[in-house]
Design a protein around this nucleic acid. Structure first.
Lengths: 299, 299
DNA sequence: ATATTTATCTGACTTAAGTCAGATAAATTT
DNA sequence: AAATTTATCTGACTTAAGTCAGATAAATAT
């Protein structure tokens, strides 16, 4: 363990020393970093300012000022969004596109420089190892937290979930026919909606409903196909159980369809045991329950 | 090639996004980043200010100001070096040591967080891949450039070189018995001294002497043992040949001892052919030459 | 229709980070 | 011994980066 931690720290140091500084410097073509980063983030297809702010985690006043600067330099133009008059959209001008291309080219040049001193075999190994690091770090980069069930991202998750189960369940799926779970049920104080995000992008969700008699009811657990197999389902489940604990709920229940074999397997491994049906969800074939006290199951 | 470059850029983005920000944030314990970094750089054993400046690439006035700030907070003390009254040494106080320990612990915590969501197998793979990336990036991080032959780092390289060949040559090595190559010979306009550095630390060297009749004479080529086998010798040789070209020298010569088999192999692969002795270096067994026009040899 | 929320902007700040031109004193070279 | 170099410091700057409190207008909820 200690050796692993040391390797990570060594890696961290080496990489920020090497790529970190170069990542900055390739954006630095004579203009302030923040400005260059914003311009690069706007990209050739343009972007909503609201989006830029969220992605980059910047103060709205600050972004506005940076945009004004880029506008003054003739690199971008902003105009209100067609769909929503409050939202403004930033778009690169021809001059801005030229700067973007410069920055992009500098990035390519830097990457080429990394490869330059290596032999063909070494290049292949480097790229493979980078891919591996990136993939495994993705797991760590996924953040789980409460979210607004009515939000656009949450709705996207739920829609994806419904679409998927409609395809997988033998008799399809119609949300109106199953037991209803509205936004209010997944919002405090009645319940909570957790979302998993990878770099801000939603990649999974799960809801916990607080019911009579100290019972937590888990529904709408979903993991995006491209992040499956890395234990995210289990992490979501753990997070939901933590929420149940916080609410003082001692029993956790959930039901699932027979088509979702992996899910059943996961619930069992997480210490759930199958019980008699506790509701009449028409899409359910298996009902599970776990008492909070007997928190167990092999990792 | 394009795929490789894209993977590197993707890696670069992902890593600076994930580790980069966390590398910063783990130093950020309520104090400015620059200050925290300097404190961390001073470390538990203290450091010469001259050294800190060089390592971190900062302006002397700026460093001075940062040190004054840390001093005011009672985190460090500075005093003149025993060896050289101009140099000052910064040392952590007990309070400083405590802050250092906090920062260090935060770094460990971060590393542990990276590992936390992974299975044992994934952890091993991550650490192995990180090690591979780090090792291969080291090649790219080695920078070759002209250096002062009289400087401390150059002298360190040369001493290491002499020590090594003294051990490897059948009849040992005494620099006073071989052909003399003084600092002046390796300094413009008479010649040039190149050094390879990895993160500032010297890891190799080579000298080029401009001689009568358009001849460039290469001597003192050395690569540190821990960076061998990654093509650094060849890169140094290429760099020296570039210098020869800049000086308009058309013929490159060098001599070597029979014990240095890998070197001879490298020279041959780089397009050098063995010629009759062109000097009476007593430690030489093989003499090589290459005309600049016939730049060739398989990579 | 009115109130609230959301997205953006402006002006007035603060702090961090760094540069540059000397000043000073120790060490080294001539 | 005098001149030069080296290491550090101080004061006077600049620029970047970001925060915060409203103001404004569009969209949405009541």
């Amino acid at each position: 363990m200690k050796a692993h931690i040391d390797q990570i720290r060594r890696f961290n140091r080496a990489i920020t020393l090497r790529m970190g500084t170069l990542d900055d410097s390739f954006l630095d073509l004579g203009r302030p970093f923040g400005e260059a980063r914003l311009l690069y983030e706007i990209g050739p297809d343009g972007a909503e300012i609201r989006d830029l702010r969220a992605r980059m985690g910047l103060d709205s006043g600050y972004v506005s000022r940076l945009l004004r600067g880029l506008e003054r330099q003739g690199l971008i133009q902003t105009k209100p969004s067609d769909a929503d008059g409050r939202v403004r959209v930033a778009r690169l001008t021809d001059a801005g596109r030229a700067v973007y291309a410069d920055v992009d080219r500098a990035g390519d040049t830097f990457a080429a420089e990394v490869l330059a001193p290596l032999t063909a075999g070494e290049r292949t190994r480097l790229v493979a190892a980078m891919n591996e690091v990136e993939k495994l770090m993705r797991t760590f980069a996924i953040r789980i937290g409460p979210d607004c069930a009515a939000g656009a991202d949450a709705q996207t998750c739920l829609t994806n979930y419904f679409t998927e189960i409609a395809a997988r369940f033998d008799d399809g799926f119609d949300p109106d026919l199953g037991l209803a779970t509205g936004v209010a049920d997944m919002t405090p104080p009645k319940g909570i909606f957790l979302m998993a995000r990878l770099d801000g992008k939603p990649v999974g969700c799960g809801a916990l409903l607080a019911e009579q008699g100290g019972i937590a009811h888990i529904r709408r657990m979903w993991v995006a196909p491209d992040v499956r197999g890395i234990g995210l389902g289990r992490r979501l489940l753990d997070a939901l159980e933590d929420e149940a604990a916080k609410l003082g709920l001692h029993t956790i229940r959930l039901e699932t369809n027979k088509a979702l074999k992996e899910a059943q397997e996961m619930y069992r491994r997480a210490g759930y045991r199958e019980v008699a049906p506790f509701n009449d969800e028409r899409y359910a074939d298996h009902w599970f329950e776990k008492r909070r006290s007997l928190k167990a199951g092999p990792a």
